[in-house]
Design a protein around this nucleic acid. Structure first.
Length: 552
RNA sequence: GCGCCCGUAGCUCAGGUGGAUAGAGCAGCAGCCUUCUAAGCUGUUGGUCGGAGGUUCGAAUCCUCCCGGGCGCACCA
């Protein structure tokens, strides 16, 4: 039980006792850490929001609530009504230090939710989902880090999460890839051949073509064109998928499910989706094509599902895919998409409405494209010209930890400039090193003391010895962590965790620099504090998929 | 033209779903190593929250309009 559980509960009970007509739904208020220590440790605006409903002055309501507040004995040292009607709580010293016992007891699980409303809810997080037409670039890396962290946040708050990768292995892009590869095979065999219009010019197809000829023999180039293209298609998809998987694995991202578009065709899911849309009466024919009446569901124009040439647009398999997710039992589907797809959101949402799904089923998290800076200049990349900044290039240069951290330290929907030089630097300016260094320093204390952090507990230790301002700050920060994780998960915003870690690391560095642990009269208490700080730094980093090293 | 995202210190960005005097980090300036990592710490300068209205006890946050940037508006994916 943390102050975040205890005090709000007491507030609710006190408020309800004020007036018989009040119900829990009337009590809308915030409770949280204060920014200014003179306002105590925690504050609530309950009286301010309640006053209009009761027709009384906020400060009078606040006084009435305080008078009826039933908190455990010696829980707070002071409660005051301040400003326009805030209620400020000053935690008793023993209660503040009690967080250390909670951290020690929970260990790597500190910050995970162990109860609540959405326990075990099945959530599907689909991310990266790069077409198998080439290597992963830095934008995919950002999506990978973000999707993985969002999935982790949901796991930490008790959801049953499936990490999923969708492979577009049908459609025109793959056809172009296959024909581009076939052209490279011809060129490699010494024949004149052109990369088709809109095809792929990258060197990786040259290398793949050479490998094919080496493996299959030069007769491969003599196959009839359609057979050659067909075999190139299978080889190209398989090869690109294998490379993407290898990159992702090294980047620390693992998927539970890799789902192929072709599976939807094989299972008849496309036709089923089409039939269900027809059954809902939301399709119509015009100009030889089959359309979805998406304007009836918030889209700004109707959309083609089946083109006049009989083939399907991308929308239909995508509808079938999300219907498939629903039928697999997921209560929510979170899709992490690149910014270049954001115009696609309204029609997807409209399609799911047409199927009768609630708007809370699909959440599309847009991830803005990444610009890469090195040596003060922007590094350009383009699939068209074959010039790449691949994800692999990036994390091999900066390290996986730095790359992941950088991708996560900004909101996903904000534009982002990746400073390669900063990510590589091993100084305080680099936030990931700064945070990891704080963890390493806490570890260093135990190394010098020749003690295992796990063996240091709060049992029998006088935690009242922790009285310095930095120590009070640290205790408050540690207390705030579980609530922060919950809010970050709710908002699907991992960058809140990096911000928290930098703040915690800052105080930890200041504390470390200013006070000694070993050999001081406060040693026992400070060792417990160091252990708890180390644990929470590690938990936050681990959640984000970043290592917490014991030495740098 | 329409839609979505964004505009906060010189720079890069936070700002807990409307709260108290808008915060960090870099950069700048001034300091700190016989000590568990100076791979660090301390102090300090710096603001018309793009602009104008509105909603209310209270707005960086919500609404409207305008300015400026990015992206998207296919019988492509």
């Amino acid at each position: 039980m943390t102050p975040h559980d205890v005090i709000p509960e007491a507030l609710v009970n006190a408020a309800l006792s004020l007036d018989a007509s009040l119900s829990r739904a009337d009590l809308v208020f915030t409770f949280g850490e204060t920014r200014d220590p003179t306002h105590g440790d925690y504050a609530t605006n309950l009286a301010l929001t309640l006053a209009p409903k009761l027709g009384q002055k906020p400060r009078a309501v606040a006084e009435a609530i305080v008078a009826r507040l039933a908190l455990p004995p010696a829980y707070v040292s002071k409660i005051e009504v301040a400003g326009p009607g805030f209620i400020n709580f000053f935690l008793a010293r023993e209660e503040r230090a009690a967080v250390l016992a909670r951290v020690v007891a929970a260990g790597p699980r500190y910050g995970r939710a162990n109860g609540g409303t959405a326990r075990g809810t099945k959530v599907n997080v689909e991310f990266v989902s790069a077409n198998p037409t080439g290597p992963l670039h830095v934008g995919h890396g950002r999506g990978a880090a973000l999707g993985d962290a969002i999935a982790a946040l949901l796991e930490w708050t008790g959801h049953a999460v499936t990490r999923e990768f969708y492979v577009n292995d049908g459609g025109a892009q793959i056809d172009k890839l296959a024909r581009s590869l076939w052209a490279r095979v011809q060129q490699c065999a010494g024949r004149a051949a052109e990369i088709p219009e809109g095809g792929y010019h990258g060197d990786y197809l040259k290398e793949l073509a050479a490998a094919i000829l080496a493996r299959e023999g030069r007769g491969f180039a003599d196959l009839p064109e359609e057979e050659g293209v067909s075999r190139c298609r299978a080889i190209a998809v398989q090869s690109q998928r294998a490379e993407q998987d290898a990159d992702l694995r090294e980047f620390g991202v693992r998927f539970d499910v890799v789902f192929s578009e072709s599976q939807l065709y094989r299972e008849g899911a496309i036709d089923q989706a089409l039939a269900e849309l027809a059954r809902h009466g939301v399709t119509f024919e015009r100009d030889g094509a089959l359309w979805l009446r998406s304007t009836a569901f918030g889209d700004d124009k109707d959309r083609v599902l089946r083109k006049s040439d009989g083939t399907y647009t991308y929308l239909l398999p995508d509808i079938a895919y999300h219907r498939h997710k629903r039928e697999r039992g997921f209560a929510r589907a979170i899709d992490v998409w690149g910014a270049d797809h954001h115009g696609y959101v309204p029609r997807m949402r409209a399609a799911l409405r047409a199927l009768g799904y609630g708007d809370d089923f699909l959440h599309v998290q847009i991830v803005q494209l990444v610009r890469v800076m090195r040596g003060g200049e922007e590094v350009r990349f383009s699939k068209r010209t074959g010039e790449f900044v691949t994800l692999r290039d990036l994390f091999q240069e900066t390290g996986v930890d730095a790359a992941r951290y950088f991708f996560l330290m900004r909101r996903g929907d904000a534009q982002f400039v990746f400073d390669v030089d900063l990510a590589k630097s091993q100084t305080e300016e680099n936030p990931v090193f700064y945070v990891q260094m704080a963890h390493a320093r806490m570890s260093g204390i135990f190394r010098v003391a020749a003690r295992e952090p796990a063996q240091v507990t709060a049992d029998g230790v006088d935690l009242g010895a922790l009285t310095m301002p930095e120590e009070i700050d640290l205790l408050n920060e540690l207390t705030a962590f579980p609530g922060l994780v919950a809010r970050a998960a709710d908002a699907l915003e991992p960058h809140r965790i990096t911000g928290y870690l930098e703040g915690l690391a800052r105080i930890a560095h200041a504390w470390y620099h200013k006070y000694r642990v070993l050999g001081e009269v406060e040693e026992a208490a400070r060792l417990v504090l160091a252990r708890a700080v180390r644990q929470v730094l590690a938990n936050g980093l681990t959640l984000l998929g970043i290592r917490a090293p014991d030495r740098m």
